[in-house]
Amino acid sequence: MSDDTLLEVSGLKKHFPIKQGFLKRTVGYVKAVDGVDLSVKRGETFAIVGESGCGKSTTGRTILRLEEPTEGQVVFQHSELGKVNIESADAKVLKRVRPEMQIIFQDPFSSLDARMTVGRIIAEPMIINNTLSGQALRDRIAELLTVVGLRPEHASRYPHAFSGGQRQRIGIARALALNPKLIICDEPVSALDVSVQAQVLNLLEDLQRRFDLTYVFISHDLSVVEHISDRVAVMYVGRVVEVGSTDQLFYSPKMPYTEALLSSLPQPDPRNRTRPTLLTGDVPSPANPPSGCYFHTRCPYAQDICKTEEPPLRDTGDGHMAACHFSDTLELKGASRLSEVPKLPEVMARHASQEASK
């Protein structure tokens, strides 16, 4: 773990038991997270993307130990304690570490207690950790509300009085209350309107610069991820199948599953009517995943080796990691760059030339 690394995850697993019968005996496991390796640097936005049910949110919750890990190691660089193994830390150590590791939840409606005022919601982390009280606490609440774009007088209101975007700002203020170093953003804008999404994303970027925050940004929306992330990890059935910088992953993918995800992005060139890559078959069950490469049952490039041997997540160059037997030979199509889209005068000139030749 290098000095510029804030969080390092190795072999992380979270398996949920499947119980059946009158005696509730364990007959199997749902492998929600099945051997995840991640490394997050200080000050960056590290995104985790994938289809619903791939294990993104469970990974984030297990990193914070909101879910107890089945196996693996989670090392966090604490400002005072140094390297802390989160997965094995006792309650006393966790209480010291958790102020520096916070989370913003997906649903701004259910994540706020409707019986508590906004001020009480934001104050709760500081009260529990005995950091502030009295006038200093009230001043801190007013400061946090102002930082996220709300007014200090909003502290006396209840969550039902606010819109979805405003509620998410309250959730962000609560996450900032203890001056964290790392924030897990669990699909923080997926429940919001598109116009509000942009405002919240811009707020998150401003706060990152202002407070030197590190984000693990979980999302299924690739357009959002492209806008906000520095590096991206793609998950499929509980495993990371590709990791790289945003440019590497979006414009030069090395994993066929990533290519299929990128093909669903809206095309900036209206003349490009290429249809998304349609994957055959269903997503494998995490309770009974296939042998070899988990993606081979839907992959258009699959060979015999894919059915029997699990591909390791290996470096294909410049830190771009991919779990594919043929990542060095496949020529996969990425997203379209805006620079590749013809400018309006060029399109009009081409159209006029075509009309003249008729």
Rank of each mutant, 00 (worst) to 15 (best):
S57D: 10
S57F: 09
T58A: 06
T58K: 10
T58C: 01
T59D: 10
T59K: 05
T59A: 10
G60K: 10
G60N: 12
G60L: 12
G60H: 06
R61A: 08
T62V: 09
T62Q: 05
T62D: 03
I63P: 05
I63N: 11
L64G: 10
L64W: 05
L64K: 05
R65N: 14
R65Q: 09
R65V: 10
L66W: 13
E67I: 04
E67A: 06
E67W: 02
E68N: 05
E68M: 08
P69H: 08
P69T: 06
T70Y: 02
T70Q: 07
E71G: 00
E71L: 01
E71T: 00
E71A: 03
G72M: 00
G72L: 00
Q73D: 10
Q73E: 15
V74R: 10
V75E: 11
V75F: 15
V75R: 12
F76I: 05
Q77F: 08
Q77Y: 07
Q77A: 15
Q77D: 11
Q77M: 09
H78R: 02
H78E: 05
S79G: 12
S79V: 07
S79K: 14
S79L: 13
S79Y: 13
E80R: 00
E80S: 03
E80W: 03
L81Q: 00
L81S: 00
G82P: 01
G82S: 04
G82E: 10
G82I: 03
K83S: 10
K83G: 06
K83V: 03
V84P: 01
V84N: 02
V84M: 09
N85R: 11
N85K: 07
N85F: 08
N85Y: 07
I86L: 15
I86S: 11
I86K: 06
I86Y: 11
E87N: 15
E87I: 14
E87W: 14
E87H: 15
E87K: 15
S88A: 12
S88C: 06
S88D: 12
S88T: 15
S88F: 04
A89V: 12
D90M: 00
D90R: 01
D90P: 11
D90Y: 01
D90G: 04
